[in-house]
Structure formats: C-alpha cells, structure tokens
Amino acid sequence: MNEELKKTIIEYIKREYLEEDAPEEVNESTPLISGGIVDSFSMVSLKTFLEKKFSIKIPDDKATPEAFDSVNNIMNLLKEFNVT
C-alpha cells in the first residue's frame, strides 16, 4: 500500500507540475519546493489533491513548505491523518 501511495503522489506531481518534455525526474526524496519544482503558490493544488483523494482536511499550520518538500515528507504528513 505504501509503495502504491508513493506512486500515486509521484504521478500526480509529474502531471500537475512538470511539462511533458521536462528533464526532471521525481522520486520519493526529490526536493519539491526547495528544488524549485513546486512553489509556495502552486502548492495549493497538491494540498487540494491530497485532501480530496484521502478525504482529509490538512490545516494551514500543517501545510508548510517543509511538510510538502518531498514525497517522503508528504508520506509522514499523511501518517498523521492515518493515511498509510
């Protein structure tokens, strides 16, 4: 399930943030925000996606750039909502 979850999130990030011809590779530890793939403004799409997909509500104080900075960090965040 864990690997499946990671794959779902990585697929979404690629589709939502990268152009089709983009050279960047995204894996579970790729820095998303500090790496310039996702900025703080466009992070909202990712937050909305996670909330809809897993029927959760991520409060603003949890939706920090650090919490969204890699797929691994996102997985840790999701654990807090019992999504594993």
Binding site: Y17, E19, F41, S42, V44, S45, T48
Partner: peptide, 15 residues
Amino acid sequence: VDGMRLCKAQLFNYK
C-alpha cells in the same frame, strides 16, 4: 497572489 490570499474563494492554478 497576495490579493487572492485575501479572498475566501477556492484557489486553483494552472501551468
């Protein structure tokens, strides 16, 4: 971006 943050509407953005 700042103006949108002051607004209650839902925010979406596109590439």
